[in-house]
Design a protein around this nucleic acid. Structure first.
Lengths: 350, 350
DNA sequence: CTCCCGAAATGGAACGTTCCATTTAATTTA
DNA sequence: TAAATTAAATGGAACGTTCCATTTCGGGAG
């Protein structure tokens, strides 16, 4: 807008109409592009809007419409690159559909989570994609979704919730990477990280157990170690694992962050990861690639999960009769150095 | 809300009033907490709201109010952990002030940037914190901020824009880390990464040049290498730097991401980073700590910048007479291994 | 010249809230 | 007990849009 007369207070459709010498209805027509209005009139109106610095008031419009174009995206931990990538996937799809994402970070606080979801509904969000904070209960979520706000739960499965869901295949992925270690000849394998109250931990540990059982290898209960899913958690849990009289030869970690902490602990003890001990992760965050030695892990395609989540939510929004559905995304093994597969190949060949 | 009667269509304040046997004005009173209403009446109303699944309609309220509680946060690259941390700082402060952040990712697209800023204003955002996409022009921004939407530009300075701004001290930080390399005895120092059209690159390179000049060390123009600020960019730019007949002994990188790419390229050539060559970064992302060898870099406190940005914007929102201000945040040297300072200390002592 | 028709433009009610000006009820004071 | 005061509750206009039902306009057919 040109330097000139800045309007002090909000300029409305009516002022535009007056200035252009038409009725507010005509202005509304060009705004929505619905009726037919003479091209030169349209031009004149658009020009006036530009001059006066008109800003469309969606709140007022929604009042009659009931059809906003906003979707909420609630993330439990934005500082985790995994969720950032997930968010990017979500945004891409929403944007193409003409929707806009209203995104918020709860930092694992269920209180904050309730607040932002309430806010989003109050602003007329048509749907919400939720990556639930730890300790989220089904009851809380009942409040959050209503007849005109579709809910989709992502990444962390939430038992007892009727919403759609998008999660990676934690069980299969964990089984896959465990099998990889078994194939390399490991038998004393530890499972490390996450708290047993977390659903994701339960799923991943289940995959681990199944793979072990199928291979006929007994699990030492002493090698099931819980810790917070942070680097420091991984570090201290690994330290105690290494202090055991009969320590593991391989460690399946809850996720990459824990694995990196565990690698640090092993290095501190003078062990060369990938030679003296195998350590593997889950998620394939960008750090997994850059850490040294590079981490063998399970790739779950965060962006793809985000895209899928957005697409599924949009489907439920546009076709409100559509039933809640669930999607389980693929989890693929990425072999790098931390498992010692390369070393192993050398010795096996030699 | 209990399993019972799910209302098919939106329930309004009037229906609540009818069901509770009061007038809509009274319901409004309890909603806003403004007038005085008998405790038992309030209770009854609240209970009815709960039963019917009432959702407050902020759009309608803002229609009279003109006072929303939303602030827009526009990020140019969410996949960069630096911006994720910045966002966390912003959110923390906004939340405490009772505001909610409406956050969007532009992925460096100025088109998308205009779209989301327009959307935010249309939804009544009181202010916008913008981390501008590359190639953002001052004209575009003039459209984006109006008399009732305060604008704050963050991280990337934008010459010719009248808005408030929050940026780290790129010049001083870059000079600081260059001095560190000079103190270690380096003389052939390259500057690597970023495109010269980027304001941030200009500032950081200026700090580099000033430090070199002050030390009386000439800059070899052949050691000023541009590349996209990505890991791959850093990798290939570093590869060509190493192919030079008289290659540098130290490299100041545009940021951590570029530095990590550069480290990979050096390792690929068989060089031990921190011994055979020094490489340093800028930003102090979490990766800088975990990469091996750990990266010497400049910490700019992304979270702190975010907090500051939010506080400054809120100030302008609540006190609309307040003038636009600028804040330049500290940039501190973090010495780790990639610069070889530790090695250096050993040899110097021995 | 009148009639008719489609195109273009318009007036007004409605959306869900707030808030001012009132009314009604409850309580205190003289 | 009446008057004065305070607390509690209410009706209605207004906010900026949309959209239905109308009206006006501009020509072409009869």
């Amino acid at each position: 807008m040109p330097q000139g007369a800045q309007p002090r207070d909000k300029v409305t459709i009516i002022e535009i109409a007056d200035a252009a010498g038409v009725s507010k209805s005509t202005v509304s027509l060009v705004l929505t592009g619905r009726g037919s209005v003479k091209p030169e009139t349209r031009e004149r109106i658009l020009q006036v809007m530009d001059e006066l610095g008109y800003v469309y008031n969606r709140g007022a419009a929604n009042l009659r419409n009931t059809q906003s174009k906003i979707v909420g995206l609630v993330l439990n931990d934005l500082s985790n690159p995994f969720f950032a990538e997930f968010a990017i996937g979500v945004e891409t799809v929403l944007q193409m559909a003409g929707y806009v994402a209203f995104m918020a970070n709860t930092a694992e606080s269920v209180v904050r989570q309730s607040q932002v979801m309430k806010m989003m509904r109050e602003h007329g969000a048509r749907g919400i994609i939720l990556c639930p904070a730890l300790d989220t209960t089904a009851e809380e979520l009942a409040l959050a979704s209503g007849p005109d706000t579709a809910l989709l739960v992502a990444i962390r499965r939430l038992p007892g919730v009727a919403a759609s869901s998008v999660v990676p295949d934690n069980v299969a992925g964990s089984a896959r990477i465990t099998r990889h270690l078994l194939n390399l000849g490991h038998r004393r394998i530890a499972y490390l990280g996450g708290m047993s109250s977390m659903v994701v931990r339960q799923d991943r540990h289940q995959g681990f157990s199944e793979a072990m059982a199928k291979a006929g290898v007994a699990i030492d209960p002493g090698l099931n170690l819980e810790c917070m899913p942070t680097r420091d958690g991984g570090f201290s849990a690994m330290s105690s694992a290494l202090a055991l009289p009969n320590r593991p030869t391989a460690v399946v970690c809850y996720n990459d962050v824990v694995a990196i902490g565990a690698m640090l602990a092993a290095a501190r003890r003078g062990l060369v990861v990938g030679r003296d001990i195998a350590i593997v992760g889950f998620d394939d965050t960008s750090e997994a690639r850059h850490v040294s030695p590079a981490l063998t892990t399970i790739a779950v395609d965060a962006v793809g999960l985000g895209e899928r989540a957005a697409a599924m939510l949009l489907e439920r929004i546009t076709n409100r009769a559509a039933p809640a559905t669930s999607h389980v995304g693929p989890a693929e093994l990425v072999i790098r150095e931390s498992c010692g597969a390369y070393q192993h190949a050398l010795t096996a060949a030699g």
